[in-house]
């Protein structure tokens, strides 16, 4: 696992890059100076990663990059070489695939309003849950895990509830509010 900073600043020149995106292999030519967010949106046709700020401040562009949730607006596209990337489109397959439990929980709990933050929120939640499969999860832990993803609509309450409901092992439900 590497940090956002390492990913941002250790690029080396190449003509094309190969990576796994949503379980499929891609090889694409390098466009100098391109951000991963732009490659995903403009060249690979994805609409899930959103641009809310372009400055690493809102989390709308979150992708899962080698197992961690990162802001794709801060990642040079060529850093994707060899990476395994999941966007929201990778959580459920096409229109026919089942929803990931986190997606379903967001829907059921009313954790979605305008939806602009939702893909990023769901992916950050997903990473958090994947890393806490056996740890008792509390709401303060969820708040912390989602603190890089801004939502202006919901006031976060229903989002945190939606994630809590998905935790395989639940910690003290009273810690910061009842179920």
């Amino acid at each position: 696992m590497c940090t956002q900073n390492e990913i941002m600043f250790t690029a080396e020149a190449k003509e094309s890059i190969t990576f796994t995106l949503n379980n499929k292999e891609y090889t694409v030519p390098v466009v100098p100076g391109e951000r991963l967010l732009d490659m995903l949106r403009n060249r690979l046709g994805l609409s899930g990663p959103k641009e809310g700020c372009g400055a690493g401040e809102c989390g709308a562009c979150t992708v899962i990059f080698n197992g961690i949730n990162l802001n794709s607006c801060l990642i040079p596209a060529e850093r994707a070489d060899g990476a395994v990337i999941t966007t929201i489109e990778g959580l459920s397959e096409g229109i026919e695939g089942d929803l990931d439990p986190v997606q379903q929980s967001f829907l059921d709990h009313g954790a979605v309003q305008c939806g602009y933050c939702t893909p990023g929120m769901v992916l950050s939640a997903k990473v958090f849950l994947d890393h806490n499969k056996s740890t008792p999860v509390t709401r303060p832990m969820i708040k912390e895990a989602l603190s890089g993803n801004l939502c202006r609509c919901t006031g976060y309450q229903k989002i945190v509830d939606a994630v809590y409901a998905c935790a395989p092992v639940k910690g003290d439900p009273e810690e910061e509010g009842e179920v």
Binding site: I88, L99, V112, G115, P119
Partner: peptide, 15 residues
């Protein structure tokens, strides 16, 4: 639950 929530949680909603 929002009837247009499905496209939002899957990233398919177009803005």
């Amino acid at each position: 639950p929002l009837l247009d929530g499905l496209e939002k949680v899957t990233g398919r909603a177009r803005y």
